[in-house]
């Protein structure tokens, strides 16, 4: 482990266990001992799972992939906070030094109708894929690569779009929202693509289609609590939601497609 000041922790874990989407879930308690303060939260769960496997029990199912804070897989709610208590951090980047020995830690899946539990802490977030498929794209001219400076983008616009593009689609905004709304996610995509000239042709239909898909998927709506932005590991600004609101109003006024689907 190395490092200075490494100590170990003894913890009381309360973990949501649910065998399949239809099953009734319940909390199970685990006493965990000798966890290094240098371990990440997922590594701590790995230690628990190793022990469960050795005891012939079913390990705790959770999603993970990159373990470096960019894939957005490690969705779980730790003591009521999506991705744990630390701002701007994914669960995989949350270190056990943030906890004290003797702490009780409650671990639940992200809870929303649109994110059904697959097993234990793993949830199905394909509702986000549906939202992306309905408008999270840009039209390109296939052919030779365009000139590098053919489409000038001012630095501040590029920076603003990039801040929205930092969204990793983890779903913490939905998990934190008292209404299970996905508006910060949709707002981030609408800002990211709509601010740039490449995304301009689809500007109106993007926002209308993505919002419609969001509603159809069973997400709630926004009551401006700002919990989403506080929970976001990429600290996507709440401003994205206000921007989404004005873009929606603008698209409603500008859109000329009156036949049901806007796509």
């Amino acid at each position: 482990m190395g490092g200075t000041g490494t100590t170990t922790l003894n913890l009381k874990l309360k973990v949501w266990r649910q065998n399949n989407p239809q099953a009734e879930g319940h909390f199970e308690d685990y006493d965990v001992e000798g966890i290094s303060t240098d371990a990440s939260f997922l590594e701590m769960l790995d230690v628990v799972n190793n022990r469960l496997v050795k005891e012939g029990k079913d390990p705790i199912a959770f999603d993970h992939d990159c373990r470096e804070g960019i894939c957005g897989s490690c969705s779980m709610t730790i003591n009521g906070n999506p991705h744990g208590p630390q701002r701007g951090t994914t669960t995989c980047q949350l270190h056990m030094r943030k906890f004290k020995t003797g702490d009780s830690i409650t671990v639940e899946p992200f809870r929303a109708k649109a994110f059904p539990v697959i097993k234990d802490l793993a949830v199905n977030r394909s509702a986000f894929d549906k939202i992306i498929a309905s408008g999270g794209y840009v039209s390109v001219n296939a052919g030779n690569a365009p000139d590098a400076n053919a489409r000038p983008v001012p630095k501040d616009v590029a920076a603003n779009a990039f801040m929205a593009a930092a969204c990793i689609g983890c779903g913490a905004c939905v998990a934190a929202c008292t209404n299970s709304s996905a508006m910060l996610f949709v707002g981030a995509k609408v800002s990211h693509l709509g601010l740039l000239p490449q995304g301009d042709p689809e500007r109106e239909r993007r926002v209308l289609n993505m919002m419609q898909t969001m509603e159809d998927a069973g997400f709630g709506n926004c009551s401006n609590t700002g919990a989403c932005s506080l929970a976001c590991p990429k600290e996507i600004s709440f401003e994205r939601i206000a921007n989404l609101n004005s873009e929606f109003l603008r698209a409603t006024v500008k859109n000329r497609n009156t036949s049901g689907s806007v796509g």
Partner: peptide
């Protein structure tokens, strides 16, 4: 949820 957002993440 059994718990709600708290600390730095509480609205």
């Amino acid at each position: 949820y059994s718990m709600t957002p708290s600390g730095d993440k509480a609205p």
